[in-house]
Structure formats: structure tokens, C-alpha cells
């Protein structure tokens, strides 16, 4: 997993609440057995006027020009600003894979759905929860200001606006450490292999039917 320490990047605003993972990456693209290549189909039904299928050359497909990610001013965006309950619905990790593959490393919203939120951290994406008033203010600034960029400083746990205002955010210490260092969970967990084995043996004695 790629480290996340500081990110200074262009912001794209997606002004919708309850964006679900079916919208982020529609089901037909879940047939892939790879982790990569989902970026061209991120928000497929909102980005294109036709119905997408796996394996198409997206350059040939008709686009919906008014969709935010199709607008020239947001090309190269690395930070997605959106509304509450982003990532609700299915547990598909293809959603964060698609966001990452498209180029997003950080997401800002008032809230995120639990499973999606968790999946982001496994892929080096930082989902930042900010109060509604601060999200509102960011939406105003980003739509009014072409080329609007934010600085995200994970070490200091804050977002820095171009006008210098600091927006602190909260993150679990463990998740922060993993992102800052680019650690994968499995290696960390396996340091506790003896504890797991002991736990398992005790459980097997107490509830043998669980190990049938």
C-alpha cells in the first residue's frame, strides 16, 4: 500500500448525498478478477451516455459533459469533496479501487458508510470527516474558485484551505500509523500469531462444534 503523509491536490465537488457503491462502480465491472483498471468506469452511469460494458475503449464512448468529473477544470483531481453517507450500500472494494485508479487519494464528506470507510484505509485512501458547516463552506469555495486546491496533512491531522484556514480532523491512531507508513494489516496481525493460536485452541475446547 502506498504511504499517505501529505497531499496537495485539486478538488472535485460531487454535490450529492448518499452516493452508493453501485453508482461508484456498477455491477458489470465487478466481474473482473483484478484489483486495477476500474478508473475508466468510475461513476460509469453518470459519466457516459451509453451503457458501459467491461472491456470497452472508453475514449470512444459519448460522455455526459455536465457531470463534474467530465468538466475540464476538474481534470487531474486527487481530492473528492462530497456529501453525507458517501459509499453506502454494497461492500465492494471495487469502489475504492475505482476511486484510486481514477486518481483520488483523499475524500472529504460529512460522513461515510462504515464498510466503504474501512475499505478506503486498506488502499491508501484517506476519507476525512468534517462538520457539515465546513463541508458547505468548501463546496462554496471550490465551485467559485477555478483550480481550487487543498493541502491535507495527515501527520498534523488537518486540512489547510488556500485562505489559510485550518480544518482539523479526527482519525484512529492505528489507521493513521498504517497510512503514514504504508503498512499492510496482514503482516501486523501475524505478529500476534501465537495469541491467535492460543485463542483458537481454547475456543476449540469450549465450543468444539464451531470447528466441525
Amino acid at each position: 500500500m502506498e504511504k499517505f503523509v501529505r497531499l496537495e491536490g485539486l478538488v472535485a465537488p460531487l454535490d450529492r448525498a448518499n452516493v452508493d457503491t453501485d453508482a461508484i462502480i456498477p455491477k458489470q465491472f465487478l466481474k473482473s478478477i483484478k484489483r486495477s483498471g476500474f478508473g475508466p468506469n468510475l461513476f460509469d452511469e453518470w459519466r457516459y451516455r451509453d451503457v458501459g460494458e467491461p472491456g470497452q475503449d472508453v475514449a470512444q464512448r459519448p460522455r455526459k459533459d455536465d457531470f463534474v468529473l467530465n468538466q475540464p477544470r476538474y481534470q487531474g483531481a486527487q481530492i473528492l469533496l462530497t456529501r453525507k453517507n458517501f459509499g453506502c450500500g454494497s461492500s465492494r472494494e471495487h469502489a475504492p479501487w475505482a476511486l484510486l485508479d481514477f486518481g483520488f487519494r483523499a475524500l472529504i464528506a460529512e460522513s461515510f458508510a462504515d464498510i466503504f470507510f474501512n475499505n478506503c484505509f486498506k488502499n491508501g485512501i484517506l476519507p476525512i470527516v468534517l462538520p457539515a458547516a465546513e463541508v458547505d463552506a468548501l463546496f462554496v469555495q471550490v465551485t467559485e474558485t477555478p483550480g481550487y486546491r487543498l493541502l491535507i496533512d495527515l501527520e498534523r491531522q488537518r486540512v489547510v484551505r488556500p485562505d489559510g484556514k485550518l480544518l482539523p480532523f479526527v482519525i484512529d491512531a492505528f489507521r493513521r500509523e498504517c497510512l503514514l507508513n504504508g503498512w499492510d494489516d496482514i503482516g501486523l496481525t501475524l505478529r500476534h500469531a501465537d495469541l491467535i493460536r492460543a485463542f483458537e485452541e481454547q475456543r476449540r475446547r469450549q465450543q468444539p462444534w464451531l470447528f466441525a
Binding site: S90, E93, I115, N119, I196
Partner: peptide
């Protein structure tokens, strides 16, 4: 509860999950 694919791998490898 539902988990993502990275956690599927985590469970396969460790029989555990990191949870809050």
C-alpha cells in the same frame, strides 16, 4: 457483517479482523 476484499484476504491469512 460484510467486509471488503482486503479483509477477505486478511481473514484467510489470519482468521481474524481488525475492528473498532
Amino acid at each position: 457483517h460484510g467486509i471488503g476484499t482486503s479483509e477477505v484476504e486478511h481473514v484467510l491469512a489470519t482468521q481474524c479482523l481488525l475492528q473498532k
